[in-house]
Each structure stands twice: as C-alpha cells, then as structure tokens.
Design a protein around this nucleic acid. Structure first.
Lengths: 95, 95
DNA sequence: TAAATAGTTCAAAATAATTTGAACTATTTT
DNA sequence: AAAATAGTTCAAATTATTTTGAACTATTTA
C-alpha cells in the first residue's frame, strides 16, 4: 500500500546481491525450507567454506534480502520477502 | 500461462545485467518513453561514450532485457517486458 | 579449564566487469 | 567520391568482486 520508490544505488545493491550463482542457490534453499536456518547448515548444503559463506551472507544482508539473528554462537538467517517484493515483484511500480 | 523455470546461469545473467547503475538508468529511460529509441539517443541521455553504450546494450540484449533491430545505420532498442516479468515480477514462481 | 564449534575479519591473490581510445564496417549526406 | 554519422570490435588499463587461509571472538562441550 505504501509507495516505495528506489534510488539507483539501492536497486543496484539488491541486483548485485542477486547476481551471483551461490547467492541465488542460497535464496532457493531458504525459499524451499521457508524457515530460519543457521548459516552453517546453508553453507554445508552449498558446499562452500565458512569464510565464503560469511561473505555471501553479508552481501545478502546488506541488500536487505535476508534477516539474521544470533542465538548463542549460531546465526540464523531467513529470507526477507518484503525486499524481494519491493524490488522484484513490484519492479515496475518502484522503478 | 506457460511454466517457466530458470537455471542459475540464466538468472545470474539477468541479475548481472540489472546490477549496474548505467543499465538501470537505461531501463528507466526506455520504460518512461515506452517505445523504440535509437542507441545514440539513449547514450546521449545517459551522457556516456558510444563505446560504453555499445557495451551496455550488448549486456542488456544478451540477458534478453531489450530487443533491438537495425534500421539503416541506427540500432533501435526497446524493453522486452516478458523477460522482466519472468525474472522479476514472477520471481517466486520461476525461482 | 581445555578443546571444539560457529562465525567474523583481514589482507593477499585470483577472477570478473567496466572504461577507454583507436581502428573498423556500414550507411547516409554533401 | 569524400566526409559525416551510427554503431561495433579489440586490447589495454582500471576498478570491482570473489576466494582463500590465517588469526580472531564468542560460546559450548568434554
């Protein structure tokens, strides 16, 4: 309902975050499960190093595509569907 | 109506094409006008060199985000909205 | 308390994307 | 036919992104 228009910089950050095969797979994985998952679990499923995982989760988080919160020593992530909706589903409205 | 599922490679190509400020501006420009425009006109509006323009139009074209056809010595481009619909508007359906 | 686990940070190396200018093709104008 | 125009191609230079491993923090388990 709220009018959302994006700056080129904001949009670029989101599309850059989506423009990588590993991150796209992470998104597919999180979408399939549709609940919070630890970074470790996702990383294992993607067969990437924890350093690489940490990097990719940071990119996704800074783009607002995932939310994250720590529980003890684990970090749980989930898709932030509102961001996908704003930038993708409602692309033309917010362009 | 037709079921469209995308490979990671295809999606990556589209999102990479969207992940650049100049190309996003080109898309905004083409969307606003909503008709075929010559590459030269777009390039001037974006204030970029013709070489740079040629590069960016190639990226957009290879991603399927624009269609192009030559008339005499000019190349006319327009948005291919079906690609935007598949990859953006219907992101979750085709993920 | 020592060892293990989950994740981050850093800098260096590797890889990929973008810009630039010169040379080019094709078409149109003078 | 010469000059101008629209766009492409190429290779080199620049800039940005990604990967890697080592060192680190914080938490949990043995």
């Amino acid at each position: 309902m709220t009018k959302q228009v994006h700056t080129t910089e904001e949009s670029t950050k989101v599309f850059k975050a989506l423009a990588d095969p590993i991150r796209l797979e992470i998104i597919r994985y999180l979408n399939k499960l549709d609940h919070e998952v630890s970074c470790g679990e996702v990383g294992q499923a993607m067969a990437i190093s924890k350093t690489s995982g940490s990097y990719h989760f940071k990119i996704l988080q800074e783009a607002g595509l995932i939310t994250a919160h720590k529980v003890a020593r684990e970090k749980y992530v989930a898709l932030d569907r509102s961001t996908f909706d704003q930038y993708l589903t409602h692309f033309w409205q917010n362009l």
